[in-house]
Amino acid sequence: MGKISLKQVVKKFGEVEVIPPLDLEIEDGEFVVFVGPSGCGKSTLLRLIAGLEDVSDGRIEIDGKDATDLAPAERRLAMVFQSYALYPHMTVRKNIAFPLKMAGVDHAEQERRIASAAKALNLTDYLDRRPGQLSGGQRQRVAIGRAIVREPAAFLFDEPLSNLDAALRVGMRLEITELHHRLATTMIYVTHDQVEAMTMADKIVVLRAGVVEQVGSPLELYRTPQNLFVAGFIGSPKMNFVTGKDAAAHDAHTIGVRPEHVKLSKDTGHWAGTVGVSEHLGSDTFVHVETEGGLGLMTVRVDGEMDVHHGDRVFLTPEEDKIHRFDEKGQRL
């Protein structure tokens, strides 16, 4: 069981209110991702849930019971830190065993759980090494191992992959998602990488300056961003925004259209422009077009085989039914 609710939770550091009153429901077994720009309070929120920081106001409930004043250890949560926070003086085995030892689990049971965690995480050969003798990915797995042996109500991850190289990051992303399917335990995952958010989450919570901007499934956020911030934050490359005459034509202050929803043609189209940089990814090409008429730079996603060159004059046409409309306040219309 791992249902977590935050009710009017506030966090202040001295005078500074980092989290204004915030409500959030996390269902049992959900994979929830907190995303947002650096400094928006993701870690703070996670640490409030963990009990590593006191809330300044409000309540935190775990499985319907008030946990606001419980010590971290009493909340039955496990956390994987960005720096992994492995105990450098203990072997991998001892690291993984530590929470069990603290919980007074008997020795045979400890061994059993360590063995199964090690097997699940491919750590069996490294059990007698120390953290210093492991690679980044292996350390990461030990940190996860230490979290899973406790069979916690929920896992908390704070940017666990940010110290890994790109290839390893993709691999670990899959492993964590796989782990979630297998354990079906609630997971709360902090990242500022929107690709991680989109690919892993059941539910994404987009934060800005401590405020929840939108909560929803990855596709909901992609299809119907509630405001300019979410629209710009979710999706890669970023959504193109247009204001002025073209927006007014759609009865909006700003319209947005994603790069994949713009057609590029060499002969005719809605907006004219000149090709700047093209990024060839193989399967796709991101073409950056300097448009005429003061609309600025637009990004278009085209087929990887398409033949475009720096300086080409091209025409862009948005797909009408994929246009997002926003009012002056940036809210979705």
């Binding site: 963990a50 250890a73 105990y87």
Partner: peptide, 24 residues
């Protein structure tokens, strides 16, 4: 973070000092 990890792992102040802090 290591001390916080210990706290999350259920260590009391005493075991935190004894098993994690002191050796380090």
């Amino acid at each position: 973070e290591i001390l916080e990890a210990a706290r999350m792992d259920g260590a009391t102040l005493r075991s935190e000092i004894l098993y994690v802090l002191t050796p380090m």
